[in-house]
Amino acid sequence: MDLALLRTFVTVHRAGSFTRAAALLGLSQPAVTSQIRTLERQVGRPLFLRQARGVTPTTIGDELAHKAAPHLDALVEIAETGLDEDSSLRTLHLAGPPEFTAEQALPALTELTGDDGQGLALRASFGNAEEVLEGLAAGHHDLAISTARPRGPLLTATPLCDEEHVLVAAPRWAGTALENLPVVEVHESLPFVARYWASVFDSLPAASGTVIVPDLRAVLACAVAGAGLAVLPRYLCGPALERGDVVALHEPAVPPLRTYFLVVRTGTLAMPHIARAHERLLRAAAQWR
């Protein structure tokens, strides 16, 4: 069976579309279609069901992908790292939300990059849940951290940790009615504040965003400066709370939580460098607040 055909097949399986697979492979869509038809003739069975939007793998298509994908990934890894016996470095491509990845995940993985024989190099990229899972499925990443659990057999998710959300503001706002406070958020839709209000107060916030900045670390800085209230993960605002830079405006009996998942392509935990990073993050997460 032609490895080039298998590579195209696995890319289509991950992308869910001939068009997206063609873009990832640098081929034309007719070329991708032709290669899949050739492989289907060799297998003697259809591998995909064509739909108005993309394709869905057949049962045999899923089976072939799960058998072939880990081995193709291993070949790609060999091609990227080379066969130089003088270098044991393996590259791990990690993707996740910027703040959590920077503040929690990357520091936890640094012990695997030292001169201790582990031989791991890190390459990180940031994005929202949809972006990182799509990139993982397409083979751009080895490991992804996501706030959404993926569906289907292509990706395997393991709960990593729960993130507690805290309603905070600068001390000068303490005692002020919440509805009179300006709001600092990462988006006009107020995703953190709205989620907090729905969970704790069973309502929607009345105020709109006064300061909108697309990074939780910048949201914290604005809250410390007195720009208004913010809802932030405890891991991020905990040090500021301890210093008194911000105060908690409300202490619900059951704080709002958000779950993070550690996600890999099914079968790739057989690759030692991915397995080591996966295990290290799970161990580190047991200590996170």
Rank of each mutant, 00 (worst) to 15 (best):
P191F: 00
F192E: 13
V186A: 04
A144K: 14
P205W: 08
T176D: 05
A144N: 04
D162N: 07
T210R: 12
L220R: 06
T158Q: 12
A157E: 05
A198L: 04
H165M: 14
A194Q: 09
C161T: 14
L143F: 11
A174E: 11
P159M: 01
P205D: 07
S146Q: 13
D215I: 01
H141M: 02
F126C: 04
P150E: 03
P214V: 02
Y196D: 11
V168T: 10
G152D: 14
T210Y: 01
P182A: 01
A174H: 13
A206Q: 15
E163C: 03
D142W: 05
L143K: 14
S189A: 15
A227L: 10
L120R: 14
A177H: 13
L136Q: 14
R151P: 02
E134V: 13
F201H: 15
A129R: 08
G139A: 11
E131T: 06
T156F: 03
C222I: 03
V200Y: 14
P205G: 13
A218V: 01
L133Y: 03
A223Y: 00
R217H: 01
L160K: 12
V200K: 15
G114R: 15
R151C: 02
L178P: 05
A121V: 06
G127R: 10
G117W: 04
L155R: 09
G209Y: 09
A206W: 05
R149Y: 02
L167S: 04
P182Y: 06
V184L: 13
E179L: 07
A218H: 06
L204F: 08
D142R: 10
L167I: 12
